[in-house]
């Protein structure tokens, strides 16, 4: 009971502090502190409720138990991370995104193909492509190659659609300007259309980071060697070792956010000129 009361007390205090903080002018510190405090509150609420109500760890382990599992099984987590993220997700992401990018440039000179590809691509991007996973596991075997293939199919269309749209993003006046310079097609592409397409390209790249990780993990549910994050999640769920499952989820969350963060940092450097990036 003490746990429950203490937790609720902490929650109220933290909420009160956040209210006060958020009514001050927004600074770098407060815009970091407020969500930070909120996150900590959630964790403590979780921990307190699990302890206070003595919730069965099979159902929901406390954050401390998850932290312990995380710390004690680092080598296993690392092996899984390499298998799923580095081998499966990253390779597929690189292949899928660059293939989509190159094809978008290849069809760039044909407005006919673009008009056909855009709606089809938009349509396919909304489909449950993840359902391809069992088929691709059949085709490419259990190891990371099949995971990579799933990721390729998943990221291809969102990336294609974004790049094609991006290449159309430069306005008429800027294209006319290129005409008055008698610029050749490659010159116009390199100097105008590609830079103008970058915000769209990076939008696609960012969407694809999450898709890549999801694809690699879910594909492992359809068969994998005895390592990998998806494999670990499904087997540990079977053994009802939920703390380990949550530790894998934490790894996935960290990897996902870090991956996204990296792409976002590169985006900031490349598209610093775009209105959405100009102010901090």
């Amino acid at each position: 009971m003490i746990w429950v009361v203490a937790t609720i007390l902490f929650w109220l205090v933290a909420w009160w502090i956040n209210l006060k903080l958020s009514h001050r002018p927004r600074t770098r510190l407060t815009s970091f502190l407020v969500p930070g405090l909120f996150g900590i509150t959630l964790l403590i609420l979780w921990e307190g409720m699990v302890r206070g109500f003595a919730i069965n760890p099979v159902l929901l382990p406390a954050p401390s138990a998850i932290g312990l599992a995380f710390a004690t099984s680092l080598p296993v987590l690392w092996v899984d991370f390499v298998q799923t993220f580095v081998k499966g997700a990253l390779s597929g992401y690189a292949i899928g995104c660059s293939a989509a990018f190159l094809i978008a440039i290849a069809v760039d000179r044909s407005p006919f193909l673009q008009r056909g590809l855009l709606p089809v691509g938009n349509f396919v991007a909304a489909l449950p492509i993840i359902g391809m996973a069992p088929i691709l596991v059949m085709w490419f075997g259990f190891d990371w190659q099949s995971k990579s293939a799933v990721v390729v199919v998943m990221v291809f269309f969102p990336m294609l659609v974004n790049t094609v749209q991006g290449l159309q993003a430069s306005d008429h006046m800027q294209r006319d300007l290129m005409q008055t310079y008698a610029a050749s097609y490659p010159q116009a592409l390199m100097k105008l259309r590609l830079p103008a397409a970058m915000p769209f390209v990076f939008n696609g790249l960012k969407i694809c980071t999450t898709l890549a990780l999801i694809g690699a993990i879910v594909a492992e549910f359809f068969g994998s060697p005895i390592k990998g994050m998806g494999f670990r999640i499904s087997t540990e769920v079977g053994r009802l070792a939920l703390d380990m499952v949550w530790a894998e989820i934490a790894v996935a969350a960290l990897a996902g956010s870090a991956f996204y963060g990296c792409v976002a940092v590169i985006e900031k450097a490349v598209t610093f000129w775009h209105p959405s990036q100009r102010r901090g």
């Binding site: 993840i130 980071t209 999450t210 990780l213 999801i214 993990i217 879910v218 549910f221 994050m229 998806g230 999640i233 499904s234 769920v237 499952v245 989820i249 996935a252 969350a253 996902g256 956010s257 991956f259 996204y260 963060g261």
Partner: peptide, 9 residues
């Protein structure tokens, strides 16, 4: 940015 779908099962 977190692959929520992966924990669905």
């Amino acid at each position: 940015t977190i692959p929520i779908l992966a924990i669905a099962p």
